[in-house]
């Protein structure tokens, strides 16, 4: 049985107690995207300002939820500010890979094939502080809390992509 200290690392509690980039941004130019976890009622609202170069110029978080969803969102904003869309998408992918060890549903990946083994960290992506969230995989119910803001951020980029004129 995994202990609480595996989940509630000090850095996670710090982001929970003092969330970074809390608030909102004027829309437009920022995109506003909501994420919701129906299981626990966690809610995250992201405001993402993407500049002409496709970089995250600014990002703010609103909403409410448990320490894991809120600290994950806070750490995410700190990690992606200033990054390009490609860099951000790499980070989203790496973060979800870190969380995916137990994230298997009925989609046929739970039979010992495919991605059922532990996921090795992608050496190309520096996870920095986000490493602290790795312990969440020992608590499968909480994985959705940790990934909520990341899925929401991916949606913001999808929206931005739809709005961009075709070249």
């Amino acid at each position: 049985m995994a202990g609480l200290e595996d989940l509630y690392r000090e850095i996670i509690l710090d982001h929970y107690r003092s969330p970074r980039n809390r608030g909102d941004l004027p829309t437009p130019p920022a995109y506003r995207v909501e994420g919701f976890n129906p299981l626990c009622g966690d809610e995250v609202v992201l405001y993402v300002d993407i500049d002409d170069a496709g970089r995250v110029a600014d990002i703010k978080v609103d909403g409410q939820g448990c320490s894991i969803s809120q600290s994950s969102a806070s750490m995410m904003t700190a990690a992606v500010k200033g990054r390009t869309e490609a860099e951000t998408r790499d980070l989203i992918r790496a973060f979800k890979a870190m969380m995916s060890i137990h994230e298997r549903g009925l989609d046929g990946n739970g039979d010992g094939h495919g991605d059922s083994g532990p996921v090795a960290p992608d050496p190309a992506v520096d996870m920095g502080e986000l490493e602290a969230l790795r312990g969440v995989v020992k608590f499968p119910v909480r994985i959705k809390c940790a990934t909520l803001s990341w899925n929401t951020l991916a949606e913001a980029f999808d929206q931005a992509g739809l709005d961009r004129p075709a070249e």
Binding site: L4, L7, C40, C66, S67, I68, F139, R142, C145
Partner: peptide
Amino acid sequence: VHPHDLSQV
């Protein structure tokens, strides 16, 4: 304290 965190503790 969020119910999820309380339940976890």
